[in-house]
Amino acid sequence: MNTTELAEFLHEQLAADEREPGGWSRARELAEVDAKRGLITLLLDTTHTVCEDPWYTCGAATKEREGERCPDNNRRGHCDCGRDRLVLAGLQLLALPYAERPGYQAEWAPNA
């Protein structure tokens, strides 16, 4: 599953929420949109586990994302620290209210 695509979908839906107010006050709706955007940023900015000993560093960690602390020989590729699972679960939950909108993918549903 592509978390970048899911995050982009969420951003589009939040933009639609800003344009089409519902039952909340406008201030409340904008606060909701800001909060969801903040959660998306928080999730996507979460880093993989990096330890001094490369054996305990997440296999998906890279210097580009996690910084210079990440060892060069850390190229196992898959996430074994839980970061990717957490990010995906958070994005799936944020997308759930938009399940009836065009562009939503059934595979994004939690536990799909």
Rank of each mutant, 00 (worst) to 15 (best):
D84L: 12
A15V: 10
C70Y: 01
T41N: 07
D72I: 07
Q92E: 13
E20R: 12
A27F: 11
K63V: 14
G22K: 13
G90S: 09
G23E: 04
D80K: 01
G22C: 10
L14G: 00
R85G: 10
N111I: 02
C58S: 09
L42D: 10
S25D: 07
E100M: 13
L94G: 00
T62L: 13
G77H: 03
C51P: 00
V50I: 14
A99Q: 12
C81A: 10
D34G: 03
L42F: 11
D17K: 11
L91W: 13
Q105A: 11
N74H: 06
Y98H: 14
Q92R: 15
A106L: 08
E32P: 00
L88M: 14
R37C: 01
L88F: 13
P71M: 07
P71I: 02
T62P: 05
H78E: 10
M1H: 07
A60D: 07
G82Q: 03
A61S: 08
Y56S: 10
P21W: 08
D84F: 09
R76Q: 09
Y104S: 01
F9R: 00
E29N: 15
P97Y: 12
R69F: 07
E32L: 14
N73S: 09
R69N: 04
L10G: 01
Q13G: 00
W55Y: 13
A35R: 15
D34A: 15
G90W: 13
R65C: 03
P110I: 10
L86I: 14
R28G: 04
I40T: 14
A95F: 09
C81K: 11
E20D: 08
E18D: 05
C58L: 14
D84H: 06
H48V: 11
A109N: 02
T47Y: 00
L39A: 08
G90R: 08
A106V: 15
D53Q: 08
A106E: 14
P97D: 05
R75N: 09
E20N: 11
G103A: 04
V87H: 04
L42W: 13
E52C: 01
W24N: 07
E66V: 10
G38P: 08
A27M: 09
A7C: 03
G90V: 11
W108N: 04
L6W: 02
C79P: 06
E68V: 12
A31K: 15
D84I: 06
G23W: 06
N2A: 01
E68I: 09
Y98T: 01
L88I: 06
G23A: 05
R75S: 06
D80I: 04
G38L: 05
D17A: 12
W24P: 00
R75P: 00
L88E: 12
R85T: 15
D34T: 12
R83T: 15
H11W: 04
R19S: 11
R85P: 01
G77R: 04
G23S: 04
A106W: 09
R65E: 05
L10R: 00
T62D: 03
A35V: 05
W55I: 14
